[in-house]
């Protein structure tokens, strides 16, 4: 049952996603229509907070709660970040959700988003099928 702590962390994250309204289809439209600062504020402050946290962890060599060293794998560049990024961006504006918010929208009571989630799993599956044929 070592994974229960991640369930609890997820509950915290789910509450935050809802109360920060980043899972709202309306907020996503505002962001891409440049009519509100809200989403830019949330994401900007989120990145700055994450950046400072990681710097502190690295500078002071902070370990996990059970004493293991913290290592963050680097992200490798390939063309997928461009093509895949553009494709995901189109879907983000249409659904008003990225993968995390899909789960949150369902929990919020919009159970029909389960269909969107199943389709997203289908999209990932098709990527897996075509992985070697796609430009990277």
């Amino acid at each position: 049952m070592k994974n229960i702590k991640y369930l609890i962390a997820g509950i915290f994250f789910g509450i935050v996603l809802v109360k920060a309204q980043v899972i709202s289809w309306f907020r996503i439209q505002e962001m891409f229509q440049l009519t509100s600062f809200h989403m830019y504020g949330v994401i900007g402050v989120g990145v700055i907070t994450g950046m400072i946290s990681i710097q502190v962890i690295k500078r002071f060599g902070i370990k996990t709660f059970d004493g293991q060293p913290i290592t963050i794998p680097p992200k490798k560049f390939d063309k997928g970040q461009i093509f895949g990024g553009l494709i995901f961006g189109i879907g983000w504006a249409i659904t008003g959700a990225c993968p995390g918010p899909l789960f949150a929208q369902i929990g919020l009571g919009f159970t029909v988003v389960l269909i969107t989630l199943l389709s997203a799993i289908g999209g990932t599956w098709v990527y897996g099928l075509w992985e070697k044929k796609l430009p990277h």
């Binding site: 553009l86 993968p99 969107t116 389709s119 999209g123 990932t124």
Partner: peptide
């Protein structure tokens, strides 16, 4: 919409 999210990400 869902398919684009799953494939794109």
């Amino acid at each position: 919409g869902g398919f684009l999210i799953g494939f794109g990400t």
